[in-house]
Write a protein that binds this DNA or RNA. Structure first.
Lengths: 193, 193, 193, 193
DNA sequence: GATGAATGAGAGTTCATTCAT
DNA sequence: AATGAATGAACTCTCATTCAT
């Protein structure tokens, strides 16, 4: 069970994003995902342990790619400010361009008992770490306050971006998420200085 | 059905906070709440439409009291900075003192399909408005940047505080939430200036 | 759950005998029992833990009554031979008169993993003990061989009766089970002497 | 489909005895047998119609060999008493030496709806016939009672031996099954006389 | 208002069986 | 002959909700 590769694995994952985004995690039945993926119900259980495993695999998939690509972005930046800008920009761009993923990330994923689930927290941690590294670097270079608590600062930074995305996902009136890049960056960078 | 008052109403609500915090929303059965409240299963349905209604009523209850008390706090402040400080302080203090409420607010509440549910967003809106009023006031008084988009700024402020609380709720190692008041305030106020 | 009294409890048990006898344990669905008992599927689970629990409760019910009634029968016998005769007679009579129970006892009950299940072996033990007491008594009175191993003798006695019943249950051509009382008694009593 | 010969046929059968004995018929999945036999799941279906067919083939295999070997044993006996002794001895010896077969024969095999299944009763019949022939011979030679009903006597004999084996299989404390040969023989032979 | 026994829809999951390779 | 991925029917059990008392 739970083969992590193979064409079907990916097909089911893609069907799951769509279905979770459309119907919501709890209202989605395995049968719905299976139908969307054009496989039999049982096939889902060849590749995933259960429904929760589908959601978590989904998230790990998304987050791994997210963090990898963000790393290459950051590689091209020359200073912490540029990096912070890149983080915010990449975060908002990515979710704006993949609204289904955004819905799953911001809403459905939080439907799982997070106190237990490390399948969610672990992939997030590498993103958190990336943010913290930028803050540390800024502190070392004297760009950001030395007395700043890095962890707390990271929470503020992530919390701000995350809330901005959540509001966008839940908003009934569509607007450009990318437009918020600059104001959010300005607030956060000043907060760090 | 769905009487909104009565002694039992309150008893059930209190039993629900405990039970949701202990077991999690989805794993909690109406029968569990009823047992904790020492009433019959059916009695729950005299006071609430259904399980979701219990959770939402709970939140409305909490938020109404939260906003009312926060308002009196703010009344005693003399300038936007003090008010922002009061908001952060009150928010963190309240949830630190009521860990069960915090668990429900930060975790369990997010288990409900938020795209539909205005029972959750409405009570939050008055809190959001309070924050926005403070920002507006700061802008008018020249304390905060004039070109600040109030709504975006509010998202950053709320997102930051909310994330700090969520991390605290989910953390396995206990620490003082109140200790984060000052650093969070400093970051946010600088971000607004 | 698993209230051991109440009208429904009995109704479901009676429906279960019929259904198991007609359809066989493994082919019987809880829904079949529920329909036969004219209750909802869920009601079965108020009174029984699961399907296996229904079968075992059934057997315990049957065996308890069986052993109780057999005891009163034995009370009226004056010597071990009469008692052995009573055991065989009562055993064969009872099952001949309750063919559904016989089917369940001889066939369906053996569909459960007996190596684990003490819900089956325990009620049987009191029957075994009754048989062993008669054999012991016979040995003490010099009626049966002193060097007879009581336990082994009991196995022979019970095995013989049990096989006779099983053959009768599985036979396609109907015949009188009671007719076998005398020949079986004669063989067994001689075997004991 | 359902080839009755070939090397794999035997390999699967041997894997099945082990697996059924270890896990129990109903809890055994075809995949378990296949893995134990080191063949693919589908291969099982080349040699057997379905899961039930595996169990029944198993039993037929066992019983055919059992009856054949028993016949040669009986051939060396000079009178019905010796033959009865041989039957009991061979029956108990065989199962004591093949505990996995014993488990399958005494427990797992009875998990199949016996009212329908002639795949089980047919191979047993030849064993029954062997027993009946010995009884008949005894009656003819005046060793056993003339008025004995052969069929009933056979049921008593087989039932006794079978129960002795079943008790041994299900017993948690190990003991020598062969030790029961003599007492069982004595009881049965006296019963017949 | 209060009760709690009864309801029954609903969905996750398993696994015997098939069949294209 | 052999494979093993894929199938999808089957069925248990849960639990929110109702309603007669």
């Amino acid at each position: 069970m739970a083969k992590r590769s193979g064409e079907k694995h990916q097909v089911i994952l893609e069907a799951a994003v769509k279905t979770f985004a459309r119907t919501g995690y709890h209202r989605t039945r395995i049968a719905d995902i299976a139908r969307e993926a054009k496989v039999a119900d049982g096939t889902v259980y060849i590749y995933f342990k259960n429904k929760e495993d589908v959601l978590i695999s989904l998230f790990q998939n998304i987050m791994n790619r997210f963090v990898e690509e963000l790393k290459t972005e950051l590689f091209q930046c020359r200073n912490p400010d540029e990096k912070l800008d890149a983080i915010i920009g990449y975060h908002l761009n990515t979710l704006e361009n993949k609204p289904e993923q955004a819905k799953v990330t911001q809403i459905e994923l939080r439907q799982i008992d997070q106190t237990i689930n490390e399948g969610i927290s672990k992939p997030l941690l590498s993103y958190f770490q990336l943010i913290e590294e930028v803050i540390e670097e800024g502190k070392e270079q004297g760009l950001y306050r030395r007395n700043l608590n890095t962890r707390t600062a990271r929470k503020v930074v992530f919390g701000a971006i995350d809330e901005v995305v959540t509001c966008w996902v839940m908003s009934s009136k569509p607007y450009n998420l990318a437009d918020l890049k600059k104001p959010v960056f300005e607030m956060l960078v000043k907060g760090l200085q």
